[in-house]
Write a protein that binds this DNA or RNA. Structure first.
Lengths: 211, 211
DNA sequence: TGGATATTGTGAAATGAGGAACATTATGAT
DNA sequence: ATCATAATGTTCCTCATTTCACAATATCCA
């Protein structure tokens, strides 16, 4: 099993680039096209593919259609992925409306909130009481959850997900969640931190240039 | 200059953990406390600090107040950072309302959109026509921008930012932006990709366990 | 058909980040 | 005041990831 996160992220990027090339009418692609598209070296592209047993044709490059298919299989995109969101604040509701997931074969099955005023069972994406998370997730075989709650609620949201049989979490709360690593995969997205990082490098470059 | 992004991200995490410890009334902290708080080894904490010239007291650990101060200086948080957002779709408007930035000393000075229907000069965070970006950014000394436009508009948004003197960008559009690396820092946040990554590891772990 | 060439696939080298270990020194107890 | 001890700061080492380099080979053209 490949555990290198960067490598898997590159696979997703290759796939996105391939969809663009495909829609432009291209049929074949070479490692240096893909490399340029996502900003790495051609040898990196070939090495990544090699790691996952993807092969092309010497002198002929890779067939775009079959490459996309292989990447989708590796990335688990050959079947629709249903996810649930906990928390319907700013981020939660933006994610609910976000079109980007649908076109990637990711469907938001339901949202959950602790606030009774937020409940809406009739909406296209229903908003349900948090207590129902466990039953809903089990009944609908949900394996992936998104945590978009305030900080203080995040850990308990995670624990509810764990007990609901959820195996993967995308966490937007800016703190470290505690869970047994063998049981659940957690990816963190921290917007403040990403911005802070940009700010650091802008300042650092500035200082370097000044010197 | 330190170019290791992970290392800078850890600094931000230390800072967040320190604020929590501070609010709990702690005065001193040891490398293993911080390590545990953000999920790394104590030697990593000390190494990180050492890289940035932060020192504590042998046997006495680090003083929380002064450590926070040092980190804030390093991270460029000693002064209020003003940012602009281009694009007022789902993500753009979620960011506008998001409370997380304010408490980190990041203030959203204005949003910009190409759609005249979105313009609102009276709002607390004004929404202005895209043509005004350049003048606004220059007049207000904005150095940091957020791209929250649809894919097709992202590259041109970046170029407007470049010409407006913006030096750092947080990009939510799921494609690679082209720009001279010496002139501008770009961080990408790609939500589909993050979810895809979670999905991959959930599947991969599942297969490993089955075998 | 055959030879020239472009492109892959992979083994080996280089790079860089993370972890271990330990010498150093500040603190607190006796 | 002295000693035992706990924590830092830094050096060294290991390991993973990236990059290089080149042999193998499919394709194209004459």
């Amino acid at each position: 099993m490949i555990t290198n996160k960067n490598c898997v992220i590159r696979l997703s990027r290759y796939k996105n680039a391939l969809y663009r090339l495909q829609s432009l009418g291209f049929v074949r692609v070479f490692s240096d096209n893909l490399a340029d598209a996502i900003g790495v070296l051609p040898s990196q592209v070939r090495k990544d593919f090699s790691l996952f047993g993807i092969t092309g044709n010497k002198r002929g490059g890779y067939n775009i259609d079959s490459l996309i298919e292989k990447l989708n299989t590796i990335l688990g995109k050959d079947q629709l992925q249903k996810v649930v969101i906990v928390g319907t604040g700013n981020i939660g509701s933006a994610l609910m409306k976000y079109k980007g997931f649908e076109k990637e074969g990711i469907s938001i099955a339901a949202c959950f909130d602790i606030d009774p005023a937020k409940i809406n069972r009739q909406a296209k994406i229903p908003v349900l009481p948090l207590e129902e998370l466990k039953d809903f997730a089990r009944a609908n075989q949900i394996k992936i959850g998104v945590i978009a709650t305030p900080d203080v609620a995040a850990q308990s949201a995670l624990e509810m997900m764990l007990s609901a049989g959820i195996k993967g979490v995308l966490n937007f709360a800016p703190l470290r969640l505690r869970a047994p690593a063998e049981e659940i995969v957690i990816n963190n997205v921290n917007l403040e931190l990403e911005l802070e990082n940009v700010i650091y490098f802008v300042n650092a470059l500035d200082k370097t240039r000044a010197a």
